[in-house]
Design a binder for these strands. Structure first.
Length: 428
RNA sequence: GGAGAGUUGGCAGAGUGGUAAUGCAGCGGAUUGCUAAUCCGUCAUCGUGUUAAAGCGAUGCACAGGUUCGAGUCCUGUACUCUCCGCCA
């Protein structure tokens, strides 16, 4: 959500930003939005004049002489009817406006690369060496089979496609990764918090899933409840409607939750294995900070650095991708993705997604703070980044660290979370 | 699932049909100067106004309706919180 006054004052910048993000005039009619707002303003002014007059009449009744009362009451009643009609009109227009407003994407950063889709994303750097095996490396599905680490076929019969069941040391590894990342985040000042995976509808608008991608979300109509695709959804609304003190900021959450995605738009993509499943676990980094672009950009870099450190601790080769305007989601101002090397696919695959949302979400959730400098109430900035998401992260992990016999090496930083084990495999 | 009590500003807390007290915190100003105190204003959203303010006005007492000239207050529905009962990992 954007400030309508900002839109009016910067209409050309807004139009340019929309175009960069791939929205056409047919998708979003800015001139229409502004015209509607001006209509609403006129209606407000006229209806407020009516209300003022009516209030004056009502307040005069107590002091009026008995014989005057009936006349005042009649006048006030008539005004009331008129006002009611105006208010109905005003409410209808405001509802229309609010629907349009919720469809307005965030403006992209001037520093984001401009492009139509993922082809416009820019690799900022590559870190770590892609491994060269002197044997024929296995893909993660094979590795799971020979190590007795999974029940992929059986679980598909029980729970359907795009689900997973992993066991033995691989199951332990999954949880170990989360523990390692949660510890790292706590060291960086984050508050560890476990959150539900169920959500009412309102937070989905607050985060910006709705009204953009309803078909990606599980919905349970009997309870009017949704399944959350990320802890970001919950954390973004946790402080909704609050006015925080500036010195409570920044608020840093390390949220852990099971995550659910319908993957409706991913037909045929990554249908086997652990890359894309309907239910997974994610540790999420979420930041609420001051309304100051240099402050939130600082946190954006910090979040990116933390997740790079996670991949380095896991000893995975990766690249940092700066996402272009056309590939960014509607809420985002600026976005980096981290992609880890997946040997069996001979390419980098996304493990982390790091975004600065500026005040776009805070406007939707009405999350504000009182600024110490001027005492004014301002919308906060929010940011989010993956901490670690499993089982996807297991794919590059076990493929990069595999040995010829199918066993998998555990990097030093992860060993404490694996009971000191340096290697895992069927007979270890 | 059942019964009862509750929800007022950033926080605390009055208010039983006639303009939302008061205190604390924050912000602005004034004044006095021993580590701060005192006084005044402001302190949620919007309209109007302005370079910016001031000012004027509308709205706002969990949310949505209703009754009334007039609703924090009366009525209906919903959400949430607390207590108790039931069920339960």
């Amino acid at each position: 959500m954007l400030d309508i006054k900002f839109i009016i004052d910067n209409i050309d910048t807004i139009k340019e930003g929309l175009q960069k993000k791939g929205y056409s005039k047919e998708d979003l009619d800015i001139d229409g939005l502004v015209a509607l707002y001006k209509d609403i303003t006129k209606l407000k002014t006229s209806s407020q004049a009516l209300a003022e007059e009516k209030n004056k009449l009502s307040n005069s009744i107590k002091a009026a002489k008995p014989e005057e009362r009936q006349e005042i009451i009649n006048k006030s009643k008539a005004l009331g009817e008129e006002l009611k009609k105006e208010m109905e009109k005003l409410n209808a227009e405001q509802e229309k406006f609010s629907l349009l407003e919720f469809k307005m994407p965030n403006m992209p950063s001037p520093e984001s690369p401009v492009g139509p889709d993922d082809s416009g994303n820019v690799v900022r750097r590559k870190v770590g060496d892609v491994p060269h095996f002197d044997f024929k490396p296995r893909d993660h599905i094979e590795l799971m089979e020979i190590n007795d680490w999974s029940e992929m076929e059986r679980i598909a019969r029980v729970s359907g496609s795009r689900t997973y069941a992993i066991k033995n040391d691989l199951a332990k590894l999954e949880l170990a990764m989360h523990m390692m990342v949660l510890d790292k985040l706590r060291t960086n000042g984050f508050t560890i918090i476990t959150v539900p995976s169920i959500s009412k509808e309102k937070p989905l608008y607050g985060q910006g899933y709705l009204p953009f991608s309803r078909d990606e979300i599980y919905y349970m109509p009997e309870d009017d409840i949704y399944l959350s695709g990320t802890a970001e959804l919950i954390l973004n609304s946790l402080r909704a409607d609050e006015i925080l003190q500036e010195n409570e900021l920044p608020i840093l959450y390390a949220g852990f939750s099971p995550c659910f995605r319908r993957e409706a738009g991913a037909a045929g993509k990554d249908t086997r294995g652990l890359v894309r499943v309907h239910q997974f676990m994610k540790t999420e980094q979420f930041v609420i900070c001051k309304n100051d672009i240099s402050e939130s950009e600082k946190w954006h870099k910090k979040l990116l650095a933390i997740s790079e450190e996670v991949l380095q601790d896991l000893e995975l080769p990766y690249q940092v991708l700066e996402v272009c305007t056309g590939d960014m989601g509607a809420p985002k101002y600026r976005q980096y993705d981290l992609e880890a090397w997946v040997p069996s696919q001979n390419c980098y695959r996304e493990t982390h997604s790091c975004s600065n949302i500026t005040d776009w979400q805070a406007r939707r959730t009405n999350l504000r703070y009182r600024d110490n400098a001027d005492g004014k109430v301002k919308f906060a900035h929010t940011l989010n980044n993956t901490g670690i998401a499993t089982p996807r992260a297991l794919v590059p992990f076990i493929e990069n660290h595999q040995n010829e016999d199918g066993s998998v090496n555990i990097p030093v930083k992860l060993q404490p979370y694996m009971g000191g084990k340096q290697r895992i495999g069927k007979d270890l």
